[in-house]
Computed example of a mutant assay.
Amino acid sequence: MKLRLAAAIALSVGMSPAFALNIVLSNDDGLTSNLKALYDALKAEGHDVIVSVPCSGQSGRGAAIVMYSTATIIADNDKTQIEAEGGCHNGAAAIGAPAVGPFTKAGYTGGDFHYVHGTPVMATMYGLDVLAPARWNKAPDLVLSGPNEGQNVGRVVVSSGTIGNAQFAAGRGIPAIALSAGTDTVDNTGLANPNSAIVAQLSVKLLKALQAKAGSTALLPAGVALNVNFPNTPTANQGWAFSRHGSYDLYNLKFKNTVPYGIGVGLPAAATPDQAEDEAVVYKTKVAVTAMQVGFDHRPAGQQWLRLRLRDLLNQ
């Protein structure tokens, strides 16, 4: 009898969401196949998830803190996108709806999905300052940003809204992870790209690995956020590898000085042996996991260099 009771208790504990987290999920693309797949995967694991994303696609806005309208959704800074879709991306909300609020798209009205007509960080801020206190009466346990539709590696990370979200949350002392997949995860019709589902399951696998080591403590140390990049055409048993923000410039961005003016992409040079662990190299074959510092403060050696270099000036 005691053995049966013990087995029943063990089974119930195993089935309970012992590691359930309160998660704010944001991105810089709005309502996407990647977002839906990750939300579904996290909910299936028992996590409580609030989605707070930009109304329209906001790639390349970095850490900008800008609202595009403050009363209702109008075609303003993102005029082309808003007019083309009659409102937020993939029908999350229509022109004329409040500038912030819950999705009005059928199937997304259960109270978990929200948009902000502004930059990615504004959406993350809304999740942290308004939605999380209303739901949990406290900050979330984790902020996930992404998965982005395209990898964020190399020098482009400073311009990434996906990275900007994670940095903003981590700056507030909240564990944060930026997730970026390939452009082969885009799906603007059914929101059901099979690659999105694989990336979502791999993201859950990463989260489980972090939880297993963290136990009841914070998932990440103070001052550390993660940048995770998935290969194109990922597989369910995709390998993982340590990586770092290095010197390899995958995208080789240049200013395009001909009409239409804007961004040009140059051919990157071959990676050197010293760049083998750069995330821009690693993600080609494995899931690249990179530790990011939070903010711009330099290591003690750099601080000491500055003290010595400007010693005479600083002592005035």
Rank of each mutant, 00 (worst) to 15 (best):
Y248G: 05
L144F: 07
G118Y: 11
I95T: 09
A6T: 08
K43R: 11
I9R: 05
K284L: 15
A99K: 04
M15H: 03
R135C: 10
N315F: 01
R311A: 13
A241Q: 10
A269N: 12
L31Y: 04
A64F: 11
G62E: 08
G171A: 07
I23E: 07
N22E: 15
S196H: 05
L308M: 10
T285D: 14
I174F: 13
T70Q: 14
N27K: 02
V66I: 14
T233S: 05
S180Q: 09
G173Q: 03
R155K: 04
K43W: 00
P194I: 03
S12A: 13
L202F: 11
L202A: 03
N90V: 13
R4K: 06
A200C: 11
A44S: 14
T185M: 10
S196E: 09
I73N: 05
N165F: 03
T258Q: 03
S145R: 01
I95S: 01
T285Y: 06
A176W: 09
F230H: 00
L314A: 11
S160L: 11
A41Y: 09
W136L: 07
A71G: 08
A37R: 01
Q167L: 15
T185V: 13
Q151K: 00
G30F: 08
W305V: 06
A276V: 15
P221D: 08
A176N: 02
L267C: 00
Y251N: 08
N232E: 09
G264N: 02
T119W: 12
T119S: 13
D28Y: 05
L308T: 12
D129L: 04
I65M: 14
Q293A: 09
A291R: 13
D278P: 11
A7T: 12
L314V: 06
V157S: 00
L253G: 00
V287W: 11
L42V: 08
P147R: 01
A236Y: 03
T290P: 08
P231F: 07
Q304L: 12
H89I: 15
N22V: 03
